[in-house]
Amino acid sequence: MKLGGFLLLLSGWGIVVAALTLLHGGALSAFIVAGLAVEILGLVLVAKSHIPLREDNG
């Protein structure tokens, strides 16, 4: 899950960079937002993967 999350983070950034290079106008805006949405999904996965399963550390 952790690796998947980081891959989504990188993929989201890839979508944004590719959109900036290839697109213009409304499609560009849509793909920037879509790329960011993919990154947020990746961030959620990474965050969930770091929640300790057994919290007892005392």
Binding site: L9, L10, G12, V16, L28, G35, E39, L43
Partner: peptide, 21 residues
């Protein structure tokens, strides 16, 4: 706002994986 989102996307999608890795 979209230009700012591109900057934020670079931070989350590039800087976070880089610094974690």
């Amino acid at each position: 706002l979209l230009a700012q989102l591109v900057g934020v996307a670079t931070l989350l999608g590039f800087v976070l994986p880089l610094t974690y890795g």
